[in-house]
């Protein structure tokens, strides 16, 4: 009996603290983007890909930036889907997180979403602005998307933002137009709404 009680006590001690009333915004250095339901948040957790977090299918490189990524918070094992990196240019966080695959990190950013406006989720999404492995002192900005994109598409080098030069986007617009309904629909709208 004594052994059983000791074992139970050991399990309890080894279990992460329940998040409860922890104020994750307290030490955040994240910048506000004035988004729906925005809350600043800094916490430690493990980086992995979302499929790994759900199914146990866990490639060593988390998909190398091609799978969607998550951070599983150390305090309460809560899984946050990384929806956005720190660049204000239509870029996700997969590349920024994949380089820390399997590592414990501290992330700083925003939890976003307001279920009163868009009730499709029962959780907020994570925008990560800063990240550091827990053994490192300094945070890094999450701005890797454009660097990786530039290496991926050297032929698209040029002036203007990446999303106006991306070959796949250009090909899709060439095929179905800016509204997705064909070029005639675009042209009709632009003619009728010419300034």
């Amino acid at each position: 009996m004594k052994k059983l009680i000791m074992s139970l006590a050991a399990i309890l001690v080894a279990t992460p603290a329940i998040a409860g009333d922890v104020d994750y915004s307290a030490n955040s250095q994240a910048k506000s983007w004035n988004l729906f339901g925005e809350e600043k948040a800094r916490f430690t957790g493990k980086v992995t890909d979302a499929i790994c977090g759900l199914t146990g299918d866990c490639p060593d490189d988390c998909g190398g930036g091609d799978r969607q990524m998550v951070v599983i918070r150390e305090d309460d094992d809560r899984m946050f889907l990384a929806n956005k990196n720190g660049q204000p240019i239509f870029s996700g966080a997969a590349y920024d997180l994949a380089k820390y695959c399997g590592q414990m990190v501290e992330v700083d950013g925003l939890l976003v979403g307001d279920s009163d406006i868009t009730p499709g989720l029962e959780s907020k999404l994570l925008q990560i602005q800063l990240i550091r492995p827990i053994e490192d002192k300094d945070f890094a900005k999450t701005n890797n998307f454009t660097k990786v994109w530039a290496k991926k598409y050297p032929e698209a080098k040029g002036k203007g933002p990446w999303f106006r030069r991306d070959p796949a986007i250009k090909a899709q617009i060439e095929k179905t137009g800016y509204f997705g309904l064909g070029h005639e629909v675009d042209e009709k709208y632009l003619e009728e709404n010419a300034e």
């Binding site: 729906f36 800016y178 509204f179």
Partner: peptide, 27 residues
């Protein structure tokens, strides 16, 4: 979910199609 481009009705459909391409291409 973020509202960065406006309310939920405006960030769907044909109006938002090009932006949806940008974001999907951005991962």
């Amino acid at each position: 979910f973020s509202g960065v481009m406006g309310g939920p009705d405006a960030v769907r459909g044909t109006a938002h199609h090009t932006c949806a391409l940008w974001c999907a291409a951005g991962g």
